[in-house]
């Protein structure tokens, strides 16, 4: 408990956690808190300005924008979290094996990671989606692939610096196999850095997801998605500027929250970095 209290002693952690919890809660309770069905169209109420009935107005089909934002949170968070977890599982395993076992695997996998990094992230994701076809699943896959190198490199570099330490030597001496040493002894030591990376990656994944949806390559309509709302809302900017302002605002808030949380986690796990700021 003391550790948790210590973590929340920083303002970044408090504000970040509050924002993220609020939006996650919003996504979970979407059916309860949203006043309308996000897909329900109302011909008589197109592009309505914010009022008592529709607190954020309606879109070009008369759908309630607030409800669409609330449901859109589900899409964004789902894709962001799933793709990063996928990337983390694959990346960490590549990093563990590359750092600890054969040199050939190390060389090949790291050159492969370099090749992935040589592509700008958005471009790579767009090309992957062009191959896999548009849709939520391929967006998730594309975002996952873009995020793998960060995890692989992070894990590998930690493993390389840990592998000659005494506790690894002693495990070897009692005859422990590579699997036991890697997953039971070494993995727990990199969990803290991994946590920080996951938080930051989720923020970037959510950003990338909305960017892809913005380009029409992410979540297909009519499902609500923040990026798609921004790109259609942009067309109606003259009649109803609020249409485009609200989804972007919630997206920005979530990103700020995740970045703050990431900063706070980094300071918490690595007090050395705090002194420098």
């Amino acid at each position: 408990m003391g550790r948790i209290r210590e973590f929340f002693s920083s303002w970044a952690a408090r504000i970040g956690a509050a924002i993220v919890c609020l939006i996650v809660l919003m996504a979970i309770t979407a059916p309860v808190i949203s006043p309308c069905d996000p897909l329900e169209m109302d011909e008589s109420a197109r592009l309505v300005k914010p009022n008592a009935e529709h607190i954020m107005g309606t879109d070009e089909y008369g759908r309630d924008i607030f409800s669409r934002i609330v449901y859109g949170a589900r899409t964004s968070i789902m894709i962001g979290v799933c793709s990063v977890l996928m990337a983390a599982v694959i990346g960490v395993n590549i990093g563990l094996i590359a750092g600890y076992t054969s040199r050939i695997f190390d060389a090949i996998s790291m050159r492969l990671m370099d090749a992935v990094i040589a592509f700008p992230a958005t471009l790579l994701a767009v090309v992957i989606i062009a191959i896999a076809g548009t849709g939520s699943m391929s967006a998730m896959l594309a975002i996952a692939i873009v995020n793998i190198p960060a995890f692989a490199r992070l894990t590998r570099s930690t493993i390389l610096s840990e592998k000659n330490k005494l506790y690894v030597e002693s495990e070897k001496a009692i005859g422990a196999g590579a699997v036991r040493i890697l997953y039971r002894e070494m993995l727990p030591n990199i969990l803290s850095t991994l946590f920080v990376q996951i938080t930051v990656s989720i923020a970037n994944a959510i950003l990338l997801e909305s960017a892809l949806s913005f380009l029409g390559l992410g979540t297909p309509p009519p499902a609500p998605s923040w990026g798609a709302m921004l790109s259609t809302g942009k067309n109606f900017i003259l009649y109803s500027p609020t249409y485009v302002v609200f989804p972007g605002l919630v997206l920005t808030l979530l990103i700020i929250g995740l970045y703050l949380l990431g900063d706070a986690l980094r300071d918490f796990f690595d007090p050395h970095s705090k002194e420098r700021d």
């Binding site: 950003l207 909305s210 960017a211 913005f214 990026g227 921004l230 809302g233 942009k234 900017i237 485009v244 302002v245 972007g248 997206l251 920005t252 990103i255 700020i256 970045y259």
Partner: peptide, 12 residues
Amino acid sequence: AIPGFYLGILLI
């Protein structure tokens, strides 16, 4: 933290 495409729209 503000995404580039949102900032662009706000500036417009």
